[in-house]
Amino acid sequence: MSRIESWLDGERDQLPLWLPVALAAGIGGWFALPGPVEWCVLILSGAAVAALGLALGAHRRLGHGLIWAGMVLALGCALVWGRALIVAAPVLDRPVVTGFAAEIDSVGQLTSRRSLRLVLRPLDRPDLPPRVRLTAKQEMAPADLMPGDRIRLTARLAPPLPPAMPGAHDPARAAWFAAIGASGRALGPVARLARAPPDRASGLRVRLSAHIAGALAARPAGIAVALATGDQGRVSAGDQDALRRAGLAHLLSVSGLHVTALVGR
């Protein structure tokens, strides 16, 4: 025990760096384990580690470290579990083709596919999830759609897709945490029923993207928009591939003014 205490004393400046690791372990455990029983076991295991630390003595570095590690491990699992419950929303149970009116929550450009990605809040349709995400062909929609606009369309909607293979990206899980209960595509034209109020704050990002896109040629505009607002939908497929090959794709992933602000300094 004295040797462990001596080693921990020598590493005391690095020990706090293990707290994010314990938090990430708790969060990762929630995703890796299959259900509530296992999540409870993980939280109780963290509590048991903390209790062991108390039994060893909070005045000892080993006991102190075990207390914090156990508490943070349990906290990580509890945080992501709580977040999953907070964002829980109804999910469509089967594919449907239906027409409905909706308010636009967000608009994104998919330049390489000449499409729009819309997140919508269906109006007066309790049979549909509160938020749905779909794509629509640009030529079939008004050119200046903004968050807050009200539209009418016909779409094919389906439950969010599961992973293409084990360990791959899970669209259904991502949709769950975004409170999106269905995804699909628009069939036919998108008609605007009403424009958003002129002071709608959520339209600022879209207006900034449109301003940059109007001031620059198409290819540099896609990169500039991604760096300024984080919207990567305007980046062409060729430029995305070139960035991946050059090892620079992460610059777009951490954008949204971050890289722009750093370069500006």
Score class of each variant (00 low, 15 high):
residue 191 A to T: 12
residue 234 R to I: 06
residue 202 S to Y: 09
residue 66 L to P: 00
residue 149 D to W: 02
residue 157 L to I: 07
residue 72 V to M: 04
residue 259 V to N: 05
residue 76 G to V: 06
residue 27 I to A: 10
residue 137 K to C: 07
residue 13 D to A: 15
residue 134 L to G: 05
residue 142 P to M: 01
residue 151 I to P: 10
residue 153 L to C: 12
residue 2 S to T: 14
residue 195 R to P: 07
residue 16 P to C: 05
residue 239 D to L: 11
residue 26 G to L: 00
residue 55 A to N: 09
residue 36 P to W: 15
residue 95 P to H: 09
residue 139 E to C: 07
residue 186 A to E: 02
residue 140 M to L: 15
residue 168 A to T: 02
residue 136 A to E: 05
residue 237 A to T: 11
residue 234 R to M: 11
residue 145 L to E: 01
residue 237 A to E: 10
residue 240 Q to A: 11
residue 113 R to W: 08
residue 151 I to W: 10
residue 3 R to V: 15
residue 240 Q to R: 13
residue 185 R to E: 15
residue 195 R to Q: 07
residue 139 E to D: 13
residue 107 V to P: 00
residue 170 D to P: 03
residue 234 R to F: 01
residue 220 P to C: 06
residue 32 A to G: 13
residue 100 F to E: 01
residue 211 H to Y: 06
residue 134 L to F: 05
residue 152 R to N: 07
residue 109 Q to A: 14
residue 118 L to T: 01
residue 189 P to L: 12
residue 97 V to R: 14
residue 136 A to T: 06
residue 83 R to Y: 15
residue 194 A to Q: 11
residue 221 A to Y: 01
residue 108 G to R: 03
residue 195 R to T: 12
residue 206 V to L: 13
residue 137 K to M: 13
residue 253 S to D: 14
residue 123 L to K: 03
residue 30 W to A: 09
residue 3 R to N: 14
residue 111 T to K: 10
residue 7 W to K: 11
residue 44 L to K: 09
residue 178 A to E: 08
residue 107 V to M: 04
residue 124 D to A: 15
residue 22 A to R: 02
residue 238 G to N: 14
residue 256 G to H: 09
residue 67 I to C: 08
residue 264 G to F: 14
residue 228 A to S: 08
residue 143 A to M: 01
residue 238 G to R: 13
residue 30 W to V: 11
residue 238 G to I: 11
residue 222 G to I: 00
